[in-house]
Design a protein around this nucleic acid. Sequence first.
DNA 1: TGTACATCAGTGAACGCGCGTTCACTGATGTAC
DNA 2: TGTACATCAGTGAACGCGCGTTCACTGATGTAC
Lengths: 207, 207
Amino acid sequence: MTPAARARARRGEGERLREELVDATEQLIEELGDADAVSIRAICDAVGVSPPSVYLHFADKDQLLFAVCARVFSRLDDVMNRAAATAGDDPVEALRRRGQAYVRYGLEHPENYRLLFMAKPSGPPEHLDQVHMPGSVAFVHLQEAVQACVDCGAFRPDVDAYMAAVAIWTGVHGVTSLLISIPDFPWPERDALVANICANQVRALSV
Amino acid sequence: MTPAARARARRGEGERLREELVDATEQLIEELGDADAVSIRAICDAVGVSPPSVYLHFADKDQLLFAVCARVFSRLDDVMNRAAATAGDDPVEALRRRGQAYVRYGLEHPENYRLLFMAKPSGPPEHLDQVHMPGSVAFVHLQEAVQACVDCGAFRPDVDAYMAAVAIWTGVHGVTSLLISIPDFPWPERDALVANICANQVRALSV
DNA sequence: TGTACATCAGTGAACGCGCGTTCACTGATGTAC
DNA sequence: TGTACATCAGTGAACGCGCGTTCACTGATGTAC
């Protein structure tokens, strides 16, 4: 990889490099197909900077990867919200689209998905509380979407939105992660499988 | 780790070391909590042998890990079959126990579970066909268990056992793998969560 | 307007480390004659 | 029964490699006076 030409940031604009590093890392993870294979050196080559400059912005490599996680979580939340918004005022359809968008995003960015949900757990940088963990927002949105289905009478009134949201999350994660991890299994056609799983989830919660 | 004293195998018993290496690897994966952290040197220390002796039995490290996979798959199949056998002649209960045994085994051996289902796919050693892949047998047993539920009239007659088995697998995998990967999430009580998910699966397929 | 100086955004070279793997070798064990 | 020899189950030392990180340094840029 030939180093990109990069002009040094002007005074006060040092933070620009931080964003460029996160960008490059997110992209390299997909390109190299393995977050472990993404080295500090490769990231710096891609940005056009020398390895030590990473440490101007991140205490260590883990914190750079954590920044990537935060960004990917926020993208994932975005695509789910946008998908849900296309469902008109049908909460069940919105929930279904939310789930399908989750799976689609995971399959389109398998290595970043792996970083979020399949990697070894590594502690967050600070004593970050649960509420501010990246990913919490997306889960809250899911929980609200389930509650909307209960409120409109489509789901049984005894459905606990929290428990159901957890169950749905594990459901969509299951198919996404196995498709990523075991691509050689003789899977049924993907869209049919995902539709089937989402339908099962809805069926199990419906009145 | 101080090298275990180990007597050299007698003539014709060289294969013994192979088994000892697989044993030690499976165990070290759980002990160190990370399959990537298990080095050839650590394995050989545990067995009481020098690193080059691995290459008497395995072409490279990947093939040693593949042998561990095959063993763990077979254990997993065992515990599911035994769990199913405790259900008397109720196929639905047998299926439920099969699923719960799967989750339980995964949570009891998280790092070996990770090796089977959450690691980067790495090609099998030979041109192993699908039928002889480790893990295929366990899936066939699951599929048969689903079919039994259809045959006894508990599941809808239009349920496709293959598609349903895939869906169930992704379901139990979802909860198992997320509990392993994201232990810090505010999970509901484990048994209740697993029971809920299994119940949902059954509910979605029942008449 | 000129200039000394502090600050900022980086760099070049090297550090120690652990890894998978290879090479030439050893010493005990069984076997042929 | 003795002995030369082939085979087997390993070993000791080293290989090259890439990694995350650190250290002392640089050169452009803005600022105070």
